[in-house]
Design a protein around this nucleic acid. Structure first.
Lengths: 166, 166
DNA sequence: GCAAGATAGTTTGACATCAAATTACCTTGC
DNA sequence: GCAAGGTAATTTGATGTCAAACTATCTTGC
């Protein structure tokens, strides 16, 4: 993509086109690298999934459901770490496509539970196959540092994911 | 990758189990840990910024602008690694709040450049102060593994971030 | 019983992100 | 010069996220 608009009196050593150098100011910030790494790898997964018309956002839901007979939306949201309101449209789409079934709860009219259908299970397996490939690539990239990487990321999630204090 | 789940508190059902463990199926997936770590830490930053009515999404833009006299939206999008269309509304908001100024380019009527105003520079400094605190916490969490972490994240971004454009 | 409060799920609104389509303008090739 | 193609920015549409407000229903406390 051609890039190069001229008028860039440097500060950046001209990298071959397409490549965007990490701005000096961010080079030492973990948060920056974390965000970029997550976004780019997720996009790669999304593209691969999208080619088969599979929505990457469904993967976590279907995978969690594949491990349990059935769950309520609230349980799902807790396990997936997403706000309950986030699930409404996803469950609607999944249900509409016949990947999950809803069963109303006779003991509580407010609630219902969702369960994978056969098609849902197949979809989960397809998405899982794609996820496995990408995690394999990530493993290769991490190499011998994988354990350290996972340990540090786990500490980050534990620290920020558990609002300590008020 | 898209697998993300758990590790988030909630009106915890804190009983014997303590906290929601990482589902076994995801425990060894880098993509999962990457996603959770990024989301939780970013949200912590967002909350801190939000308390001062600062939008975390502005930080990267303002910071990049703070290092150069002026830039076009396209240059900004390249350096920030975001799609050009993503910037339109952000720049509109920043401009509307008087944090940046637009200057039309006399040589090209299609283009314009943006520049920080004094208020924009102050806003950048406020956000930067918040970002520094969070990156310091991240540094503490990473400890001696910081260099390895940044190296691996950089390799991930480089691998997935440079799609061999078909 | 019945009012008050808690809980399940949905709706709405503000942000972000990308990709594809649009509009306006510039550059080129002949 | 003028049509054809490229480029800058915007618009539109699909996903995805959270938080807050809202509806419906269940539970409680008296």
């Amino acid at each position: 993509m051609a890039v190069e608009a001229s008028t860039r009196q440097d500060t950046h050593t001209e990298s071959a086109d397409g490549e965007m150098p990490v701005p000096a100011m961010f080079r030492n910030l973990i948060g920056y690298h974390l965000r970029v790494a997550q976004e780019t790898s997720f996009q790669a997964f999304a593209r691969a999934a999208g080619k088969a018309d599979l929505k990457p956002g469904w993967y976590a839901l279907l995978t969690v459901l594949a491990e349990r007979e059935s769950m309520t939306p609230s349980e799902l949201s807790r396990i997936c770490g997403r706000d309950r309101s986030t699930l409404t449209s996803s469950l609607k789409a999944l249900s509409h496509r016949g990947l999950i079934e809803r069963q109303s709860n006779p003991d509580d009219q407010r609630s219902y539970s969702v369960r994978l259908t056969e098609n849902g299970r197949r979809m989960q397996e397809q998405l899982h196959a794609i996820a496995v490939v990408y995690n394999r690539r990530l493993d290769e990239i991490a190499g011998k540092d994988k354990a350290v990487l996972i340990a540090v990321l786990g500490r980050i999630a534990a620290t920020f994911g558990t609002p300590q204090h008020s």
